[in-house]
Structures are given as C-alpha cells and as structure tokens.
Design a protein around this nucleic acid. Structure first.
Lengths: 336, 336
DNA sequence: TTGTACGCGTTATCAG
DNA sequence: CTGATAACGCGTACAA
C-alpha cells in the first residue's frame, strides 16, 4: 500500500505538506502543491480511510439493519437509504438479519466494532437489550418501518394501524359484511398493527373477520391460506379478502381465481404497500399505498440530524387508498 | 470510546495481556484471564475494527457493486451475496450505482480508500479504466451477472445468449413465425446478449423479429413498447412476444390483454429470469430460469478463493425453461 | 510556507 | 506466564 509517506518522499516534501494538499487546508506553495499532486497521481495514491478514522474518531459509516433484501419492500427501502447516505458521503453497512434474532445480535456487535456513527433499523428483535448496547456506546439510532421495542428512539414509519382501518373502511363502504384477513409474516409488528386496525374497524361495524396469518414473506403460503378460507360454503364464504401486504393479497387473488371465483365479481381483494408488484397482477390490485421512498429519505434525514446533535421535524407519512381493479360491491349486494 | 488500555488499567494488567485474552492466543493465567474478561464485560468493550485493520493490513471487507437494489433481480442477488459474505466473517459494502457511470467511479474510489480485500461487480461501465485501479491495487475482482469489459476477471454469469436462443427455440417449436422482442434496459449487456441469441436463433429459421428496447428496468415502458408492436394489422402482428426479462414480459402481457388479445390464445409471451414476479401475473409467465441464488453463492466462493490466492473451479450455471401459462401454438396454427 | 513529532487502538516481537 | 515497545497511516499541535 502506498502511503502518505511514499508521496512525501517522491515529491521531496514532508508528510505534513502532503496531508495539507490532500485535505486542502493550511498554506501550501503553488509549486509544492503541484509536485505533490503529481506524485499522488503518479503513485495512484488513495488515503487510507481506516487511518483517518483512527485520528478523527468518526467513521462516516452507518449501519442499516433490515430483515431482508430479497423481498421487494425492503429492496426498495435499502436502495433509497443507501443512495441518500452515499449522497451525503456516508457509507452504508447493510445488514440482512434474515429474520434471525441471533444474526441481528451479531450484526450489532459488528457495527459496534466498526464504530458506526449511526444506525437505521427495522428490527425483528422483541426486546431492547441489543440496541441498548448501541445506545450505551452513544450511537444515534433511528427506527424505520417499525418501532424499536422498549427503546425511546424515533421511528420513521407510517401509521400501520390506520392503514389496517383504511382497508376495512373501503370494503365496508362497498357493502361487504364477510371478511377474511390474509397476512404474513405473522411475527412482523407492522403486519400485526395492520391486522389490529382492520379488526378494530370491523368490530366497530359489529363484524369479525377470519384471520389467517402465515410465517414468511411468501406468496405460496398466503395463497394456501386464502384457498382454505375460501373453500367453505358459498353463502358463508368471505366476500372480501384483506391482505396485510401486497404479496399476501396477490396470493389471495390467485387462490380465488384458482377456485373458479371471479375477482372482484365474487371476492374483492385489497392489499397494503403499493409495490410495483401490485400492478403486475391481473386484475391489478387495489391497495393502500405507503410512501416507501419518502420513508427512506426521512429516516436518513432524521439520522443525519441526530448525528449532528440536532433534531429534525418528522414530516407526515400519509397513507393513500389506490383504487385499481380488485374491489367491488359484494355479489349479493344488489339482491339484499 | 473505551479501549484496550482502559481494560488493562481496570484489570491491573498490561495491554498485551488484554490483547491475548481477546484474541485467545498466547499464554494467560486463569486468574488473570478472569480479571480481564470481567473488565471487558464491565466496560462493554468492543475491539476497534479500524485499529485492527491498521495492524493487520487486511480489512475483511468486500465491495459489492450493483446497478440497483430496488429491482427484484438485484435485490435477490444482493441478499444472497451479503449473507454468504457475512457467513464467512466478511463485511459487505453494498454500492448501488443507480446505473450511473460517474457514481460507479466514485464508489470505486471509496472502496480503494476502504482497503477492501475484494470486489464483486455487476458493472454498467463501458471500459476497464476504473476497475483497472482496483487491479493495480492488487484487489481481486469477480464479475457477477455480466463480464467486466476489457478485464480478464472471471465472470460468474449464465450464458445469456444461450438463454436468448432458448426463448426463441421454445416458441419456434410451438409453431410461431412472427416474433417481437420486448426488452429493457437496452444498455444492459445481459439483455443485449439475450436479444442477440434470440435474433440469431430466429435467423437460423429464416425469421427476423421486431426488436423494441426501452431504457429502464421499467414495467410501464415495456408495456407501451409491446402495445405499439401489437397495434398493427392482425395478420401481420406478432404471435409471440419475447421479453428479455420477466418484468418486460409482464409488461407485454398487460399490453396484449389491454388490447383485448388473449394470452396465450392470440399472443404467446415468454420471459427471462424466473423471478417470483413471474408467478404473480395471471396467466403465470412461462420463462427461462437462471439460477440466481446459485450465481450469488458461486460468485462469493470464487472471490473468497481469489482472496486466498487460490482458484476455485466454476460450477455450471444452467438455464432452464419453466413452462407456465403464457405460451401456446399460434392461433392460425391449426388452420395452416 | 514547511517540517518534526506525537497519538489514535491494535497486535506482534522480544525480553523477562 | 506477563510486560514494554514498535509499527500500521494519518492529521495536527507546535516549532522553525
């Protein structure tokens, strides 16, 4: 590795001068500067980031803890976050926990060792002990998509429970009375919050949905769940399926159509997220959109503010009903 | 930041002893070890990774250069790569170039500064000058999904051109004679290779497809492209649409159905990749599957071997036709 | 305007 | 079995 010292020798100056040229501070004579710059390009010198961090005590690195990258939701979130950080000269250390608490704990140890200046996290952990280690080390944390249990960190996330209510509301207004909630992954707090919102809103209408929750971010599982729900007696069968995510809802559409039911003629289906995938299905999925890219942008803005010892105001993260082709009044509605 | 020195003081030993305890090498008396370990937990000490790197000269970090994370293909690839690296105690530095050559160059400078031990890259660059900087610094590079132009790096990628041929072959065997290729993004070498394979195979059958290529990884654009292609005279209109990716093919399906055409009754559609999304559309997409997860696994294995100065044999990365519901003989076939 | 010397947190070498 | 010390590459008081 060629170091600042090699440059100094090559240019016939001291290391201090080289440092000054590289960082553009302090006085350096024009001729000297030129000689140094020439040596820098000649030897293809790049300053060693680790050595810099040793001196400065700041790493310009940010941990980004996410359950996965191979599901569209988190892929998009990771993309936005990474770009926003890079734009600010911050290096993202993306950590896929793969929904494993042990792995998440390991990642936190690693981030501590890396001396990260901040952490963005969508955690799958149930308690705060792991994140407390970061707090104790003075590392600012911002929660994304979901709160950090037991921690007083700011959380950049939409109101998932309100989202659950919105889904129910829309179908209620269309006249539906028999509902099922198809959702996954069951352990995900945002999913739970949506289910809770839906159940609550339906309860206000004197109704109670069937709730079928699966374990993974998985299309097949949700399809199977929905197929089971739809298999019963046609007059008892739900006329409205509420997916806790778009993928769950897409699974539900497949289940219905596989059973020979028309969507939305026989069953209405609604999703949550408004991923690109919502438009890939046919009929295209009606869904509640969350401002995913805005969430990423806001989360980074919050964290950067925290890292600078400031507190930024958190913008609204509004949910929005996106009407497409999978919801309609229930079949018997006209006959009631 | 609490350092090894703080631990030494707390435990009443020298820093050397602390280091020995932490790294579990050299002789340390049981009592001494206990005292040190107690101090470590008491002060919640985590060794500073940067200082370690300074001494060792090795960073245990790997650059992962990808065009994006917000498209399913690269999201999955990134996920697999990140997990494989972490499993081996290597830290992934994921870099989204967002298809920008300038940004990619900036990332390479950053990776050099980070003293990465290796790089995995799906580049959008047209020449080798940027990657040559890594080569000059002695950093092993493995290309993923596509070769690195002008560089003698190993490339872990399926035979995209053969994939293009497979798509044509399947439709030819069904009896189709009028083809269009719908693809994006146009500047992507894998896409180009697939188009080339398709065109070549069709030429061998004395046929020439229309080729319509868009600029982004974009559903809407491909749908528009396909709509244009299908808009003409029904007897001239292609009976088979070849998507260079699943997303392009899904766009094509929407175009056809939007025009009142039946899939696969009036038009057959085939895709490439076999993403989960291929199964979300209705009818489900027939496609050529590439072993995406295997590509990630192999790429990491190759890189790790290179980093150890070894060379691993590269396993086959077979493509496979996945028959689903979007291809059938052309409508006039029975009447010919 | 330029240079000398120290310290950031580790680990390896060598001495005891 | 344990400790003192040098060195990794850099930035910055301080001196010249």
């Amino acid at each position: 590795m060629t170091s600042i010292r090699d440059i100094a020798r090559q240019a016939g100056v001291s290391v201090t001068t080289v440092s000054r040229v590289i960082n553009n501070n302090g006085y350096v004579g024009a001729a000297t500067r030129a000689r140094v710059e020439q040596a820098v390009t000649a030897l293809a010198f790049t300053p060693n980031a680790h050595a810099r961090r040793m001196r400065s005590g700041t790493s310009r690195m940010v941990g980004v803890i996410l359950p996965a990258l191979d599901v569209p939701f988190f892929g998009i979130l990771a993309h936005v976050i990474e770009q926003e950080l890079f734009r600010r000269g911050l290096q993202a250390l993306i950590c896929c926990t793969d929904e494993s608490p042990d792995q998440e704990a390991d990642y936190i140890s690693m981030l501590l060792a890396q001396q990260v200046d901040g952490v963005l996290a969508a955690s799958v952990l149930a308690d705060s002990t792991q994140y407390q280690r970061l707090v104790d080390a003075g590392v600012p944390i911002v929660a994304v998509d979901r709160a950090l249990p037991g921690l007083a960190a700011i959380s950049v996330a939409p109101d998932h429970q309100a989202g659950g209510r919105m889904m129910a509301e829309h179908l209620l207004q269309l006249g539906h009375r028999r509902f099922a909630v198809i959702g996954a992954p069951r352990h995900s707090p945002p999913v739970q919050a949506r289910v809770q919102g839906t159940v609550q809103r339906l309860a206000e209408a004197g109704l109670r949905p069937q709730v079928a929750l699966g374990t993974a971010h998985d299309f097949d599982e949700c399809r199977a769940l929905a197929a089971e729900v739809l298999a019963g007696d046609p007059v008892q069968r739900p006329t409205a399926l509420i997916g806790t995510t778009d993928i769950a809802a897409i699974g539900a559409i497949h289940a219905a159509i596989g059973l020979g039911l028309a969507v939305p003629g026989d069953v209405s289906v609604i999703g949550f997220d408004d991923l690109p995938e919502a438009r890939y299905v046919l009929p295209a999925l009606t869904t509640v959109a969350q401002p995913l890219r805005e969430i990423g942008v806001q989360a980074v803005a919050q964290l950067v503010a925290r890292m600078a010892g400031e507190v930024a105001v958190l913008a609204e993260l509004p949910l929005r009903l996106v009407l497409r082709d999978t919801t309609a009044p229930p079949p018997q509605y006209g006959l009631a």
